[in-house]
Amino acid sequence: MTDDPAVSVLMAVRDGAVHLPETIASLRAQADPGGGLEFVVVDDASTDATPALLAAWAEADPRLRVLAAPAPMGLAAALNLGLGHVRAPLVARADGDDLYAPDRLLRQAAALRADPRLDALSCGCVRIDEAGNELARMAPVTGPDRIRFRTLYTSSLLHPGAMIRTAALRAVGGYDAGYWTAQDSDLWARLLAAGGCLDNLLEPLVRYRVHATSLTAKRGAAGRALSLSVPERVQSAYLDGLPPDHDVAATVDLWQGYRPLAPEAIRAGLAGMERIAAVARRREGPEVLADMRATMGRAFWRQARWLGRRRPALAVLLVGYAVRARILR
């Protein structure tokens, strides 16, 4: 190919032979995003049949370039290696075990061309298990302001469903190889800190495979601390520095609501969320404030239900906070 393509699909894979054929088929079936397409795939020192599968793909499809790492690099470093070979102005992330709707790249490229403010755009997804069975349909948060605010607590963009402007990605230095987990959260935070704009398409354009032994599930205390370093720096910037008693972990855990929290963590999370909310009430617009109130209300109700009769006084307090969060205007 002599002309630069419109979109480069960037993928890093290590020992992905089990699901890679399905992923390759879904990528090769992509509609032309308007101006051509290339695939840049980094084989991160695979020891299974992945190199043979990629070689067969390259032989059948001249749009593919395979880069072989001599030793395992990790996802962030492998993606940076591939990024150095990307030729398109738009780079679309893909993982070697997910499946992609045939119009995913076409729709995202059209949306990015239509809105030059956007630096990254992801989408909804269907979560599937290792056998491909549907688990849940996940509707993403939409709206750049809502997504920016939620970065204080969580990542709102599905990484393997994201399309990013190559220039913006390179301008922030690509991926931080120090993040062996939460590479995406770190990237979104750095793009936003540089004045970037992020959004989602509502449509579920990715079938996202969930593994019982995923890195997130087994990352341990060190991985959790690394992941929390992202909201820590975002909250610090938002609050112009963190007070000594500000508990980032409790604040994040209460907002996300994935599990019951101990009473002391709930109280610390309440204090942290209210500290952020006080700044938000002065700084944010109606859309962000409404989303903040709704999310806080749901978080408080959830913990109140989990507490039940074990801690009735705290449960009642949380119910009061939930009601107040929903009615405040």
Rank of each mutant, 00 (worst) to 15 (best):
M1A: 14
V9K: 03
V18H: 14
L20N: 09
T23L: 13
A29T: 12
P33W: 01
G35L: 00
T50G: 11
L54M: 10
E59K: 04
P70F: 02
M73L: 15
L75K: 08
A77I: 04
A78T: 05
R87H: 02
D97W: 14
D98R: 03
Y100W: 11
P102A: 14
D103L: 09
Q108W: 01
D115H: 04
R117K: 06
L118T: 00
L121P: 00
A131Q: 15
L135F: 07
R137K: 05
P140C: 08
G143R: 01
L152H: 12
H159E: 12
A168E: 03
L169Y: 02
L169F: 03
G173R: 04
Y175K: 00
Y179Q: 01
Y179K: 00
A182C: 14
Q183M: 10
D184A: 12
D186K: 03
L187K: 01
W188R: 03
R190D: 11
A193Y: 07
A194Q: 04
A194H: 09
A221E: 15
R224D: 15
A225G: 11
P231W: 03
A237G: 12
P243G: 13
T251F: 07
D253E: 15
R259Q: 14
L261T: 04
L270C: 14
A277T: 06
A278P: 15
E284I: 02
E284L: 05
E284Q: 11
P286S: 08
E287C: 06
A290M: 10
R293T: 06
F300Y: 13
F300R: 00
Q303N: 07
W306M: 02
R309V: 09
A315K: 01
A315S: 09
V316F: 12
G320F: 11
G320W: 09
Y321C: 15
R326S: 12
